[in-house]
Design a protein around this nucleic acid. Structure first.
Length: 231
DNA sequence: GCGACAG
DNA sequence: ATCTTGTCGC
């Protein structure tokens, strides 16, 4: 069901045009049913080469118990260009997504959503391609300005680009750098912040993101029977 | 022209 | 993102 025509631009200009088109399709309000399966999405490059490994960890909500995982590896050609990250990482992510027994109800993507120059970060791109609710959770800023974030756990301030609010800078834990939360698809910013907090327990990043990261980077611990799969 | 710049 | 030991702080 995925519209792959929105994923393979031939030039940078074409990529930017696609992003403008995708940004138009983003739904910035709640448009989903009950959410029981929350997925963390991340891509790593073990060894630092061009071989990308996408990992998806599906957790039960609200218990946050691990339900299932999926991994896919593939050669990545598109270079890393700030603002065009999704064209580099999404192809292999979609491969991993196809290996799940069922689609997740919500995606927590490692990277920005609307907090992007054209309001089309990787979380928006993936959300629109799959038409699944998604949220962007980034560890650092791409664009936007904001006031200092109060130290209290759960405190957040708006991330602005000019007069527009494009995301939230959220303190998930006391004493850690805040994370950048933004709308991916089919969810409001306020609810996105709530989801991120609900998935975060004792670390800076949500458990979903942590589980996916552990699988995508060689840091995966030994357990599970699941496939480490090549194609 | 000079910085900034998700992962 | 990835390459890496020790080290500061709670």
């Amino acid at each position: 069901m995925t519209d792959l025509s929105l994923l393979h631009p031939r030039t940078v200009d074409e990529a930017i045009a696609l992003q403008r088109e995708i940004a138009r399709r983003v739904v910035c309000e709640e448009a989903h049913g009950q959410i029981e399966r929350v997925a963390g999405i991340d891509v790593g490059f073990p060894g630092g080469g061009t071989r990308g490994r996408a990992a998806i960890a599906v957790l039960d909500f609200p218990s946050l118990a691990l339900i299932e995982t999926a991994v896919a590896e593939s050669e990545v050609n598109f270079p890393y260009v700030p603002g065009l990250l999704s064209f580099r990482e999404l192809p292999v992510v979609l491969q991993a997504l196809e290996r799940l027994s069922a689609p997740p109800d919500l995606l927590l993507v490692d990277g920005h959503g609307r907090a992007h120059p054209r309001r089309c970060g990787i979380a928006c791109h993936l959300g629109v391609l799959t038409d699944l609710p998604s949220i962007g959770v980034a560890k650092s800023r791409l664009i936007g300005m904001h006031e200092p974030v109060p130290q209290r756990r759960g405190a957040w301030v708006p991330l602005r680009d000019g007069s527009e609010i494009i995301g939230a800078v959220l303190r998930t834990r006391v004493g850690v750098h805040p994370v950048y939360v933004s709308i991916g698809h089919r969810v409001s910013l306020e609810r996105a912040v709530d989801w991120v907090m609900a998935c975060t327990t004792r670390y800076r990043l949500p458990e979903t993101t942590r589980a996916a990261h552990a699988l995508a980077s060689g840091t995966a611990r030994k357990r599970e029977t699941g496939g480490e799969g090549l194609v």
